[in-house]
Design a protein around this nucleic acid. Structure first.
Length: 590
RNA sequence: GCGCCCUUAGCUCAGCCGGAUAGAGCAUCGGAUUUCUAAUCCGUUGGUCGGGGGUUCGAGUCCCUCAGGGCGCGCCA
């Protein structure tokens, strides 16, 4: 629990009071006690369900217990008043000076305000993006990248020891197809007389990647290897002569492009793990031995999927993992008929690698099309770690890009799809990141290119940035007093309901961080900032109507300092939240 | 056929591991501009929380069921 979290602090007070009222109850009896902001602000600043949740064990009527508890809580130094309410709640109204005292806490902590300890330093691996290295990133990858990055930041802020990871899917068939496609660009660079169709027909699977982005790869291959990878005249040589080389160079160049795309989005991952390197190191066999030793692998024949049997279905004995023992619907195959690992098997190797590196918690951000894959992966992690390591999967739904009211069509095959870079160039990194976090991950979203650059209240990016810019504008006009100076200011002048409302919001930041981190829901940060910006805009406009509420008042230096402390604290919390989202705060609007 | 996710105001969405009279924004309509940028703010209208059943002192939230939408279902990753 963060000591900055006033809800946690009052909850602790409540539990202590309960323990005095009910000396016979064990400490566990109070586990479900919560201290929350009531939905209706008229009920006060905080409400606790304490009497409701312990009444049964204590054999007391909830309202009666609530009344006794309220009496004790009312005597606390932080509390103005406490009253039993409803079926057994206790509503608390906090003393204004206690609320105001949160401002120096914020100003002293700076952007570290809200840093939590709920993660308790536990090591968590957050894997996200993990786009196949077969081309530049497109908008479809964008949401997962932003959600994953913000979630990792959020967990870090809440006290986890976070590693940001990218898993390079460089072992599958599509990477070979990529190499064939890059080789075509290489032949072109050499001036081949072959047509694209002739080449496409000569290779397994046809020419799958026709985008222009492979042209520089072809030229790079030519620059590096001359014509040594081809027959004279730019004619194709046997794959054994070039395939590994071309694949390696191409994947390397694609990963370079992806890293640049990610950097443009403000994403910097700590670890890049190559699927191929993992497999070549024997990690899959190691995982199989481990699972076999636990009796979790056998050879069997799966039933065909009901209702939609593939054309070429035939019963076939396969090496299967007993996923059903861990809650999955069927046991899952580990080997293809050619003996190589299935995608699932390779991913087991990947997860074994994570477990061996000592992570106690694993988090993945996947597209919703991988939803059917979650249970089996969780089964594998449970099996490999004997249930000691958890795997959480955050699924992100499709993003539809819209411009001028029309959906923007994507066609990867034609090479005309909207790249991530296009999107960033069009609306900017900050708008992309913020907007991607204005929805729950698991809800489809429309990304309206016109809306996200609009400078109006409709656009939450703008609305929040504008609030920060206004804060900075006020502080600049006041000569940019230091946080330390403001932290020492007397704050008694802050008594208007709008000012106190803003302080309450600021004081709920640590709690918001903690709850969002535990729920793995970074979008809550965006909503919090939107609400906070709203509170600030309200106060700003009150100053317009009532001159005594202006931030800077020449005739009242003490009130001015108090309000500057409030403004500086607001700016600090906005920056703190934007940092989690990976969005740069702006100093002024232009 | 089976599994997972979703369904909340006219629209786009929140709703904090069950808590009090379900909240924002947009749209509608009405109002605030000698300023610390009105790019903002205030007020107003609007909901059987998809339908039905169950658990509970209490359900938008948990369970069952039905309907509608999305995704997936052995050698694609």
């Amino acid at each position: 629990m963060s000591t900055q979290d006033i809800f946690a602090a009052l909850r602790a007070r409540t539990v202590a009071a309960l323990a005095e009222l009910l000396p016979d109850q064990p400490a566990e009896a109070f586990a479900r006690v919560q201290m929350e902001p009531p939905r209706d602000p008229a009920h006060g600043d905080m409400a606790t369900n304490a009497a409701l949740v312990v009444a049964k064990a204590a054999r007391q009527a909830p309202p009666k217990l609530a009344a006794a508890l309220a009496e004790k809580l009312a005597a606390l130094p932080e509390v103005e008043s406490a009253a039993p309410a409803g079926p057994g709640f206790v509503n608390l109204r906090l003393r204004e000076d206690f609320l105001r005292a949160q401002l120096p806490v914020i100003l002293t902590a700076g952007e570290s305000y809200g840093d939590g300890s709920v993660g308790a330093g536990r090591r968590v691996d957050v894997e996200y993006v993990s786009a196949n290295p077969t081309g530049p990133m497109h908008v479809g990858h964008c949401r997962g990248a932003v959600v994953g990055d913000a979630l990792a930041n959020l967990l870090r802020k809440a006290g986890w020891d976070v590693t940001k990871e990218y898993y390079i899917n460089d072992a599958g068939a599509q990477v070979l197809a990529l190499a064939y496609a890059a080789y075509w660009r290489y032949l072109q660079a050499l001036g081949t007389t072959l047509t694209e169709d002739e080449y496409a027909q000569s290779i397994p699977g046809g020419l799958q990647y026709r985008g222009d982005y492979l042209i520089p790869v072809g030229e790079a291959l030519k620059a590096r290897f001359g014509d040594s990878l081809a027959e004279p005249g730019g004619m194709p040589a046997g794959p054994s002569h070039w395939l590994d080389t071309v694949r390696d160079v191409t994947v390397e160049m694609m990963m370079q492009a992806i890293r640049e795309d990610l950097a443009a989005l403000g994403v910097q991952q700590d670890v890049f793990v190559s699927e191929r390197a993992l497999i070549e190191s024997g990690k899959l066999e190691e995982a199989e031995r481990l699972l076999a030793a636990k009796g979790l692998i056998y050879t069997g024949v799966l039933e065909p999927p009901k209702g939609k049997t593939p054309e070429d279905w035939e019963p076939r004995p396969q090496e299967l993992f007993r996923a059903t023992q861990f809650g999955d619907e069927v046991d899952r195959p580990l080997r293809k008929s050619d003996g190589s690992g299935t995608y699932f098997a390779n991913d087991i190797a990947n997860h074994l690698h994570k477990i061996e590196r000592g992570f106690g918690e694993l988090v993945h951000v996947w597209g919703a099309d991988h939803g059917g894959y979650v249970k089996r992966m969780q089964a594998a992690v449970a099996a490999l770690s004997d249930g000691k390591v958890t795997l959480d999967v955050v699924l992100t739904q499709i993003v539809h890009v819209v411009k001028d009211g029309q959906p923007v069509r994507m066609s990867k095959r034609a090479g005309t799809y909207v790249t991530l870079r296009d999107l960033i160039d069009e609306v900017g990194k900050d708008a992309v990141r913020f907007t991607m976090l204005t929805r729950k991950a698991d809800a489809q979203m429309e990304f309206d290119l016109d809306k996200v650059v609009e400078q109006s209240r409709d656009n939450p990016v703008f609305y929040v940035q504008y609030a920060h810019a206004r804060c900075r504008s006020v502080l600049r006009q006041a000569g940019d007093p230091s946080a330390a100076e403001l932290a020492a200011a007397p704050l008694g002048a802050l008594a208007d309901p709008a000012e106190l409302a803003l302080i309450r919001r600021l004081a709920s930041w640590p709690r918001t961080v903690e709850a969002a981190a535990q729920a793995r829901e970074p979008h809550r940060i965006a909503f919090f900032l939107h609400d906070l910006a709203g509170d600030f805009h309200v106060l700003w406009n009150k100053g317009r109507e009532d001159a005594t509420l202006r931030f800077i008042r020449g005739d009242e230096p003490e009130a001015t300092r108090a309000r500057l402390a409030l403004v500086a604290a607001t700016a600090t919390v906005i920056r703190s939240g934007l940092a989690v989202m990976g969005v740069t705060p702006v100093e002024e609007m232009r």
